[in-house]
Simulated scan of single mutants.
Amino acid sequence: MSDKNALVPGSDRSTALDLGGSTKDFVTATIGKQMFGIPVLTVQDVLGPQRITRIPLAPPEVAGSLNLRGRIVTAIDVRKRLGLRNKEVEDPGMSIVVDQGGELYSLMVDQVGEVLSVPQNAFERNPATLDPRWREFSDGIFRLEKNLLVILDVTRLLDFAGSVKQAG
C-alpha cells in the first residue's frame, strides 16, 4: 500500500517529500476500497483473525469480545459503524487494538496496511462531499497520490460504547 506522497520513515522517499513541516503518523487500514488512518499513538496492537464471542443484546456494531493475553477486548465492526455493507467474501479480516479510557477495543477492518508519515501541513478538513456518516467519525483527510486517507477519530468512533456501559 505504498503511496508516493506518504512519508515513510527510513524510506528513500522521506527526504524527497519533506515539505518542511512536521509530520503525523497513522496506521492505515482498508475497509472496502477506502483507506483510513488511525493515529499511531492510539494503537496498542495489530491482530490477525481472532475467535470472537458474541455479546447478547449488544448494538450491531459490537461484534463481540475476544481474549487478548488475558484481557477482555470489545470487538467493534468498523464496517457497520461506518454504515457500509457487509463483506461479500467471507474474509476474516484483521483488527487494530486501541486503548480508549483504559479499555481495549479491537477495531475490525478488512486489511491493515502500513504506518504512514504524512506532512501535517497537507491536512484538510472533511470535504462536504465526504459521506455524512464518515464525517461524524473523521478528524479530516490527507489527499495522497492515489488515495484519500480519511483520519478516524477513535473517541467519536467508540462514543456509543460509553452509553452501552451505562445502560448495562
Rank of each mutant, 00 (worst) to 15 (best):
I76P: 00
G113L: 05
S11K: 06
P39I: 01
I151V: 15
V89C: 01
R69A: 09
K33F: 14
A29Q: 02
V46C: 11
D45W: 02
L7F: 03
I76Q: 00
R85Q: 13
V73F: 03
G140S: 09
S106R: 02
R133L: 15
E124N: 14
E90C: 00
E90N: 12
D25M: 13
D153W: 00
L107R: 09
T15C: 02
G20W: 11
V78G: 04
S65F: 11
P60Y: 10
D153I: 00
R143F: 05
S2W: 15
T30H: 08
G32H: 01
K4R: 14
E136V: 01
V112E: 01
P60G: 00
S138R: 09
S106N: 13
K4L: 14
D159H: 09
L47F: 07
L7S: 12
S106V: 04
P49R: 01
A128G: 06
G168Q: 12
G10V: 07
V73Q: 04
G70E: 10
D99G: 03
S106P: 02
E88F: 05
Q34R: 12
L47V: 02
R81T: 14
Q44I: 05
A16Y: 03
W134H: 12
V43K: 03
E145L: 07
T15F: 12
T155K: 15
A6M: 07
V98T: 07
D18M: 10
I151A: 04
S14E: 15
V154I: 14
V40H: 05
L130R: 05
D3N: 14
P59V: 04
L144Q: 11
F26G: 09
A161C: 14
S14N: 06
L157H: 09
A75V: 11
D3K: 02
R133C: 07
A161F: 07
D110Y: 03
E103K: 15
P39H: 04
L7P: 01
L57D: 10
K4P: 11
N86Q: 12
T15E: 15
V46K: 00
Q100Y: 12
G102W: 11
R143K: 15
R13V: 14
P9I: 14
T155F: 09
V112Q: 04
F137A: 06
N126S: 08
P9R: 12
Q111M: 12
A128T: 09
R143I: 11
L68E: 00
F26R: 06
G20T: 10
L7C: 09
G64F: 06
L17P: 01
F123Q: 06
F36M: 07
M94D: 00
L149T: 00
E114S: 12
G20C: 13
W134N: 00
G20R: 11
V89H: 05
V164N: 04
P119L: 03
A122H: 10
L116G: 05
R51F: 09
